[in-house]
Amino acid sequence: MTSLSDFSATSIEGKDIDLSSYDGSVVLVVNTASKCGLTPQYQGLQELYDSYADRGFTILGFPCDQFAHQEPGTEDEIADFCQRNYGVSFPMFAKIDVNGKDTHPLFEWLKDEKRGLIGGAIKWNFTKFLLGRDGQVIDRYAPTTEPEKISDDIEKALG
């Protein structure tokens, strides 16, 4: 059975990260963007991270520029923006594609596991996937779902 630990991704600092390093954690995977109407969700995501990180929860942010060119910056610019404006301290990764022929393998798997309203495709920035400690997808949340609305599901997954 495929799980989060079967994938790797490049960190926003350019290091190859084996996602098995998150084994045993509850993980929220989010495709992000810095120039989106939903960008203020970074604040709510950071609040979730601050609230639950000590209980084995993390967020993995994956910048994506596939929706209305809302993530035009370099990795350094994205990292600086997230830190400066929202104090983001959860792991961020290099820009990826979440749809189309160059979709990152992690997102291919996530979309296969939990389809959205328009099938498997990611509809917009800030689509969220909650994964349990076993690395399996628990649920998928629409881009407009505010991070705090996921708290109960995170609590349940943390046990």
Rank of each mutant, 00 (worst) to 15 (best):
C82E: 11
L45V: 01
N99P: 05
C36M: 01
F129H: 08
D16Y: 00
I154M: 09
S5M: 06
F57H: 09
I118L: 15
C36N: 03
I59M: 03
S3M: 08
G116A: 04
N31D: 15
I78E: 07
L19S: 10
Q70C: 11
S5W: 05
A9M: 11
A94N: 13
V29E: 02
D18Q: 12
K95Y: 12
T32K: 09
G56V: 01
M92D: 13
D50W: 02
T103W: 02
D97S: 10
E71M: 05
I154D: 11
N99T: 02
F67N: 08
Q70V: 10
E146P: 00
N31V: 12
E77H: 05
F107Q: 08
L158F: 08
G44N: 02
S8G: 13
E113L: 10
C82G: 12
S51H: 08
E77Q: 15
P40Y: 13
A157M: 02
H104D: 10
T10W: 00
N99F: 01
H104F: 10
P91K: 13
G116D: 03
I59A: 01
P147E: 11
T10I: 13
N31H: 13
H104S: 09
Q83A: 13
Q83V: 06
M1L: 05
S34V: 08
A157S: 13
K95E: 10
E75H: 04
Q66I: 02
T145M: 08
L4E: 13
L158M: 06
G56S: 02
P105F: 09
F81K: 08
D80K: 14
E13D: 15
L19E: 10
